[in-house]
């Protein structure tokens, strides 16, 4: 099964809708609730990053019998230093993002914490591709 979403970068209010749809779909398919929770948190963090830092993007969710892959592509500014971005507490978020309750520097660490696989390809000025994988 494959699900595709386009995430609008200018609509903070709607951010997280794709993750909510994926969460509900996985629940309906009967996946264990703790696993669904992990997937939802990791995807939501990635979706929020797309909206807050990269002006939106595209998401493709692919589900097989044993593995779930979430591929997220944006044409945002890219990540200058991935090692630094992976550190808990490091953030490039501006004041506006922090006022919204984000930008604590936990996004990428959370994605790593809750997934079985995290791959990031990024080119500064071109965009970022994030791949999240989960064993089912």
């Amino acid at each position: 099964m494959t699900l595709c979403f386009t995430v609008d970068g200018n609509d903070f209010l709607r951010a997280g809708e794709a993750s909510a749809v994926v969460k509900r779909t996985l629940k309906q398919l009967g996946l264990e609730s703790s696993l669904v929770r992990k997937i939802a948190i990791a995807m939501y963090e990635a979706e929020m990053n797309m909206v807050l830092h990269a002006n939106g993007g595209n998401i493709k969710v692919t589900l097989s019998d044993t593995y779930l892959t979430i591929q997220m592509m944006d044409t945002g500014p890219g990540i200058k230093d991935i090692d630094l971005a992976m550190q808990e507490g490091y953030s490039t978020a501006n004041q506006k993002i922090r006022e919204l309750g984000f930008g604590a520097g936990m996004g990428l660490p959370n994605m790593k914490r809750y997934s079985d696989e995290l791959k990031i390809k990024t080119v500064v000025g071109v965009g970022t591709e994030v791949l999240l994988g989960f064993k089912l």
Partner: peptide, 30 residues
């Protein structure tokens, strides 16, 4: 800080917050 809630919150909890926006509800949903 919703990022911290996403990092550390357990299941079946009540969230206390002074933050008002739609992402608080989304975070709770996730």
């Amino acid at each position: 800080l919703m990022s911290d809630v996403l990092a550390f919150a357990k299941e079946k909890i009540v969230l206390l917050t002074g933050l008002i926006n739609l992402q608080v509800i989304r975070t709770a949903e996730m």
